[in-house]
């Protein structure tokens, strides 16, 4: 369970400094070459991803970006099921004012998994996604000042999850159940609830031969008065029949409103 904690990041930086010293002693010519490189992603990205600069430009509005150990991504060390890798994102209490979370798998053919606005909810989300190959999994938390605070973990995967047809589309069964919702609400502390949702949807990526892209576009969680508790926008990599969890600053029943990219509506009520 790689968890990107404060100690891990610190250890990484110290190890990096030691490696540089050893390299200087042993292989001076190559360090001289390395010194010519700009202070780029390779030295700043703790996960050393080749695609990170592109991720910032395409999916994080060009930054500014800070690697922040308070944004914690938990994934299993290896993807046992490439079609449904469980991911959990938590943000430490000391990082306040998080307005949006974006989830990105750098090396997936479609990197952006979802964006989440925890309107009256904790900056926490849990979901499953499809992975095509081993990749960093990132959570970027945007605070009020516009800075993206980024945490992440490497996921090892045999892959193939993005280019496989969904079970539902393969079997033609989904039409009867499309956009049906199941849910559960659990009390958490005095004033919070865990909401877990499952929405029936093939979530086709468009990358499997002959099957066009078809996925859920958005889900809103509302209280009984119709006030927004949370808003999630979802993209192709989210798993088929996605299961999502939220931590709401709310007790009592909730309403779900959403749609997929063909305009089919998703509507549900979940009680405790």
């Amino acid at each position: 369970m790689p968890r990107h904690d404060a100690q891990g990041v610190l250890a990484h930086r110290v190890a990096g400094a030691r490696c540089a010293l050893v390299a200087l002693l042993l292989i001076a010519p190559s360090i001289a070459l390395a010194a010519k490189l700009p202070d780029s992603v390779k030295t700043t990205d703790p996960l050393r991803s080749p695609a990170w600069d592109a991720m910032v430009a395409r999916h994080l509005d060009g930054g500014p970006v800070e690697f922040d150990e308070r944004v914690q991504v938990t994934v299993p060390p290896t993807a046992e099921d490439a079609l449904a890798v469980p991911v959990e994102v938590r943000v430490d209490d000391t990082l306040t004012g998080v307005e949006e979370l974006r989830l990105i798998a750098d090396l997936n053919p479609i990197p952006l998994i979802l964006s989440y606005r925890p309107t009256r909810a904790d900056p926490f989300i849990s979901f499953r996604f499809k992975v095509e190959q081993s990749t960093p999994v990132r959570a970027a938390a945007r605070t009020k000042d516009g800075v993206w605070h980024v945490g992440g973990a490497w996921l090892s995967a045999a892959g193939g999850g993005c280019t496989a047809p969904s079970h539902g589309t393969g079997e033609g069964m989904w039409r009867d159940q499309l956009n049906q919702v199941s849910g559960g609400l659990w009390a958490r502390g005095e004033d919070r609830s865990r909401l877990k949702l499952r929405v029936m949807h093939p979530m086709d990526t468009g990358l499997a031969a002959g099957i066009p892209v078809f996925h859920i576009e958005s889900l809103r969680v509302l209280d009984a008065k119709g006030q927004e508790l949370a808003l999630i926008k979802t993209y192709e990599p989210l798993s088929e029949n996605p299961v999502l969890s939220f931590e709401l600053k709310h007790r009592g029943p909730v309403r779900i409103e959403g749609r997929d990219i063909q305009g089919n509506l998703i509507q549900a009520r979940v009680g405790p």
Partner: peptide, 22 residues
Amino acid sequence: FQRSVVHLYPAMELETLKKAPH
């Protein structure tokens, strides 16, 4: 154990979710 969670947990989770009609 971690692999078993991936294998077995989704079905157990679904048993705890209720159909949520509009």
